[in-house]
């Protein structure tokens, strides 16, 4: 954890979420994946942490408008920069997506088009959101690839996704997502599929770009320790609800037993504990 330079944080909220609910109808009745989540995001790095089934990914998807069609979304408020995301038409929503809001998923293999070269995908993304000439688009794509620390942008520009490593693919993905200059980015486990050393490189790139451009970032992850070292603020989710919101620097003073349990149960180098403390899940946490 470090106290980097404070970002120019404007107090007006970029994203306002109030009482967000996502419900899936299934054969055995309704399943509430997200049960009344509220938070707001400024130009900062916000982490959403939880285990599988906590609803963290569904929260991100609901904001992006990527929830499967059979699910029902409701909220008192779900507004991006004053635009009510639940009221806008699908077309406007698509225009927002990519242009002003971007999303990075866990595995670049599934989110990049396998039959199109990386460069062309970035150029296409740029040209769907901005009126630019071909030559200019190419230049900007190359510059973007350079910005995500790809050493030989001209070579990578012509490669197809299967020809690059996972770390390289994720960088290309970040380049593609940032090319249109979005104001907010949602990153869902962006580095979980990567090797640990590569993971830090990618996070470093993400961190620099987000603070340079003054973007709002929602970083969704299962790794509480990683999130707290990367974000300014952390939301801890359990069973579709927010159990705790706190500043990353104050994680050590977490109140909720779930947050503390989650922090405690991971093995750490230099802290011998046999057996490891385990979570004693209380039914009232989910209530």
């Amino acid at each position: 954890m470090s106290g980097g330079p404070n970002q120019q944080r404007s107090m007006s909220a970029l994203l306002d979420v109030d009482d967000l609910r996502v419900t899936f109808p299934t054969r055995s009745g309704l399943i509430e994946a997200v049960r009344g989540v509220s938070f707001s995001l400024g130009r900062e790095r916000l982490g959403i942490v939880g285990e599988s089934g906590s609803g963290k990914s569904q929260t991100g998807r609901a904001i992006m408008g990527l929830t499967p069609p059979q699910a029902r979304i409701s909220a008192n408020k779900l507004a991006f920069d004053g635009i009510d995301l639940l009221a806008v038409s699908p077309r406007e929503r698509r225009a927002l997506r990519g242009k002003r809001i971007a999303m990075i998923l866990q595995d670049p293999k599934y989110s990049l088009d396998p039959v199109m070269s990386i460069g062309r995908q970035i150029v296409e993304t740029l040209r769907t959101h901005e009126k630019v000439g071909k030559a200019e688009a190419r230049d900007r794509a190359l510059a973007m690839l350079e910005a995500v620390q790809i050493r030989d942008p001209a070579r990578v520009f012509d490669l197809h996704p299967h020809e690059v490593s996972g770390g390289m693919g994720q960088r290309a993905m970040i380049a593609m997502m940032l090319i249109a200059g979005p104001e907010m980015m949602i990153a869902d486990e962006p580095t979980s599929a990567l090797d640990v050393t590569v993971q830090l490189d990618v996070l470093g790139i993400l961190d620099r770009l987000v603070s340079e451009r003054g973007m709002g970032l929602i970083f969704i992850s299962h790794d509480l320790r990683l999130v707290s070292s990367f974000c300014d603020r952390v939301i801890v989710m359990y069973a579709g609800k927010v159990v705790e919101q706190l500043k990353a620097s104050e994680l050590g003073r977490a109140q909720h037993p779930y947050t503390r349990g989650l922090l405690n149960c991971m093995p750490r180098i230099g802290f011998e504990r046999h057996p490891l403390p385990v979570l004693d899940r209380k039914p009232e946490w989910a209530a």
Binding site: E51, H222, D223, C265, M266, H274, P275, L276, P277, V278
Partner: peptide, 15 residues
């Protein structure tokens, strides 16, 4: 596995 489940399985393996 999730971190909390990981702890349980690691404990089981040690045991």
């Amino acid at each position: 596995l999730d971190a909390s489940v990981q702890a349980e399985v690691l404990n089981l393996l040690e045991e």
